[in-house]
Design a protein around this nucleic acid. Structure first.
Lengths: 334, 334
DNA sequence: CTGTTAGCGCGTTCAC
DNA sequence: GTGAACGCGCTAACAG
């Protein structure tokens, strides 16, 4: 069943069918339109997506690049993007870069070859967006998650105020009397991580606690690394609190602590970041910062589609609100 | 940069270029082939995926249908599929059916329209595969996750022995002296859930404990439902253990229990199923059954690609091994 | 308002 | 061994 079959059945040309298919307002008479529509309905005809893509050089597909779907933060975001996109008839092709620049670039290329309409991009390793140049060149709209608004002036960005969020969290920990605090960060060149680090330091400074560079451990947002870094921390210094730059690493830290017979928060306090769905269920319930990640995903998709469909091509920048989630992993001390 | 450009630069026809591109063994001279290859290399030319798909009616893409990516069981599986597929140059398009038959069918159609090469399919609602008929009709290979090997004779299936796994788990709980046990299942017409139910009942029977139909609560594998059903359980009967048919529902149960001031496992024992990454971190560490889900995802992708690329088109059935994970959510009683 | 026709980029007969 | 030409299904000028 092709456009030609429909045309034949209606005694019109393929062009006409194409016009009603694409809701071309001008150029189709009321009567003809209805006739064609009826046949389309009756035959349950659907235009071939691939042929259409080849002709228009634009697919009804948006690409979603993520560093790791198995991280709940990411999968929840994927869910948001997918749900919103499908509402508007867009498919989303999920690309798990596994946090590797090469794989990411490979995907970028594939997406571009497949004429994706737009891109939603997130990584947690780098602020370097050189891989996106092709996209920028082809003027394919894209939206960045958790990237620097200032640096990427021309880009649309969705994020929270990471620095402020970590500032709030750190102040909370500080307010509980902690002074010897270790930080387990993400990649050094990750935007969100570096922002969180800024917030962390600022909070320390504001209450007059020295930040000891030795107590800042560079991680990568992965569970296993939280586990390993916690080992380093325990060897290196006696801290009363460990601030992890995401929940998943906090889980790793918790595990190591447990193995070493340390109790949280009695012996040591721990915090996370993201407020993944499970943060409230772990032992102890994790004090963390909530990001409205599902909504951010939906919004990203929505805004991208707005750009695609016309009206508002403006650059879109939005900072969502974070929220401090105080649970039981931090204890007040001396 | 198209195939025509390459042809021009090589002073050959597009047909020849096409042949070397597709590794057509016959019909290209050694010398010509090398010449073409060199130019392809030099220009970094990549054939257009969309045009190729239109011409061959087959895309280098596999579809992955999942009921809910935000469920760690699913996202881990997605990760496995994606990683394996990308090794072989296949993209995977992720389709979150949100557990809705309509959305699933819509996706199936989209995939088919986009000429996906193959499909990996999972749901947790139904054993009804009617939506796949089109695929079967088009003889697009597909692999089922967690479906009935006997019923779907002609289909390739990857799963664990759900009945046996739940049997083992239930026997363990029984061995701890529990007799009044509630079950929180998945959808009634879910294959994996019904299998687990069989295993559950068999274990009860084998040790001579009556299974009380009133104590079997039909759920849907979602956290919230675990939470709600736990409320029903507490109202209805005094049980000493709750066996949940997946980890996520166990989390919901745990939350409700906590809210009601009940301690696990002191006041009541709870088990899960799947052994999601977080099962070991929650409070208390969850006794559950481990499925090698990441490997299952990889294997599914691998086998699908085998079918696609030729050699072995046989039906593939594999049962992976499960493993009982005894942690701390079950207490020995009286 | 409607139809004709030329691509989109590649694969694939069928001649040479 | 190699090339010319047509077709995949649709869109987009350009005519009429």
């Amino acid at each position: 069943m092709t456009i030609r079959d429909i045309a034949k059945q209606c005694n019109v040309s393929v062009a006409t069918v194409s016009r009603v298919l694409n809701n071309d307002p001008k150029g189709v008479g009321q009567h003809t339109r209805e006739k064609v529509l009826k046949v389309i309905e009756a035959t349950n005809y659907k235009p071939n997506a691939v042929a259409r893509t080849l002709a228009t050089k634009r697919a009804r597909t948006i690409g979603l690049i993520l560093p790791d779907v198995s991280n709940p933060f990411n999968s929840m975001m994927a869910k948001g993007v997918e749900e919103e996109a499908s509402k508007y008839g867009y498919n989303t092709i999920l690309c798990d870069s596994n946090n590797e620049k090469e794989k990411e670039n490979a995907y970028l290329r594939i997406l571009s070859e497949n004429y994706v309409a737009g891109l939603i991009y997130n990584n947690f390793k780098s602020t370097d967006l050189s891989g996106l140049q092709d996209f920028i060149g082809q003027s394919i709209p894209y939206i960045l998650i958790d990237h620097d608004i200032e640096t990427h002036e021309g880009a649309s960005v969705i994020k929270i105020d990471n620095a402020k969020a970590m500032y709030d969290l750190t102040r909370f920990v500080l307010s509980k009397g902690h002074k010897k605090i270790a930080a387990v960060t993400g990649y050094e060149d990750s935007y969100s991580s570096s922002q969180r680090l800024i917030g962390f330091k600022r909070a320390m400074n504001d209450v007059g606690v020295d930040v000891n560079a030795e107590l800042i451990f560079t991680g990568d947002f992965r569970l296993k690394t939280g586990y390993e870094l916690c080992g380093c921390i325990l060897e290196k210094a006696k801290v009363t609190a460990i601030i992890c730059f995401n929940d998943v690493m906090a889980l790793g830290v918790l595990q190591k602590l447990k193995e070493n017979g340390l109790k949280v928060p009695e012996d040591i306090s721990v915090t996370g970041f993201d407020n993944i769905e499970f943060a409230d269920f772990i032992d102890p319930p994790l004090t963390t910062v909530s990001q409205p990640i599902y909504d951010m995903g939906r919004r990203a998709a929505y805004q991208l589609i707005q750009k695609l469909e016309g009206q508002n091509k403006d650059i879109y920048k939005q900072e969502f609100q974070h929220q401090l989630m105080i649970r039981k992993s931090v204890k007040a001390i001396g």
